[in-house]
Simulated assay, not measured.
Amino acid sequence: MHTPIGVFDSGIGGLSVLQALQKELPHEHFVYLADNAHAPYGEKSEAFVSQRTHAAAEYLLARHQIKALVVACNTATAAAIHELRLQHPSLPVVGLEPALKPALALSHTRRIGVIATRGTVSSEKFARLLASVKHEAQFEVQACNGLALAIEQCALPDQAVAAQAQIAQLVQTYTHAMGPFGSAPGEIDTLVLGCTHYVFVEQVLRQLLGPQVQLVSTGEPVARQTHRLLAAAELLNPEMTNEIAQPIRLLTTGDLQGLQAAAQRWLSLPPEVCHAVPASLTLG
């Protein structure tokens, strides 16, 4: 059986990154771990997020012998990616950061919006990233408290209707606070989705902001970087035509039905690929 690539997020948001990884690396196996019991991370302390990220990495290494780790969460990347790389120097580790640099290449008005969790926008890592590009455009940064949680709840059948209404309200409130969107001078023409969850509300954003505004996410660049690291380490699977083993497993520390619903809705995956694991992620 092929050694899988581990993908980790606080919840279902990282499924958007997994989708990009599957497209970029069709011959690889994946194990995805959603820490739904503690989601979302964006409004938790940095110490807590770091502790959970390390626990997830240890769990995936011990239980699934992963050959690489994709931290598919901007908040977890900001809190723990440096320590993870120091602790596991032989493990290829790929993190996320809001796509400010790709957005610069797309923007004509030089006004760029960034929506992300409070944990991401208040991190030192994001501050350094913003400082490196702020002279090239005007960035309007908005922390979106509650949005990732509403997207999590949207995957639960008994909460979906209420969650969708809340998503629409939150998106309208936060984008309105950032200023006018559009393609005219002085308007925000590019919006960076700085949380993997937000990819799943692209349709809501497009309806609200109009077709002139470009939405930028991180899934495809992360998938390409993962491909590059695996190739450099000679860890890519050979191209196989007769696969027998299940190429993907989805794990959750929280509600199994919620993960199953999200996997079916966004990745067209059957319920049997989803499994519950202890919320503590203990190995005993």
Rank of each mutant, 00 (worst) to 15 (best):
H2G: 03
T3E: 14
V7Y: 08
F8C: 08
I12W: 08
G13E: 10
G14Q: 09
S16Y: 04
A20D: 13
A20H: 10
Q22V: 07
L25Y: 10
H27D: 15
D35R: 00
E43G: 06
S50L: 07
Q51D: 15
A55S: 14
C73Y: 02
A80H: 11
I81D: 08
H88A: 09
P89F: 07
P89S: 04
P92F: 02
V93I: 15
V94W: 03
P98A: 05
P98Y: 01
A99H: 06
A99K: 01
A105P: 01
T109R: 00
R111Y: 00
R118E: 15
S122P: 13
K125H: 11
R128G: 06
V133C: 04
V133T: 02
K134A: 10
E136G: 01
Q138F: 00
F139H: 02
L149C: 08
I151P: 13
C154G: 10
A162N: 06
Q164D: 12
A165I: 04
Q166P: 04
I167H: 07
I167C: 08
V171T: 13
T173S: 11
T175C: 13
T175G: 10
H176G: 10
A177R: 15
I188Q: 00
L191A: 03
L191D: 00
V192T: 05
C195I: 03
C195L: 06
F200Q: 13
V201G: 02
L205P: 03
L208E: 12
P211N: 03
Q212P: 01
Q214S: 04
T218K: 06
T218E: 13
H227C: 10
H227Y: 12
A231R: 12
A232V: 06
L235M: 12
M240W: 01
M240L: 14
A245K: 11
L251K: 06
T252L: 04
G254I: 07
D255C: 06
D255G: 01
L256A: 12
S268K: 14
L269D: 03
P270W: 05
E272Q: 14
P278N: 11
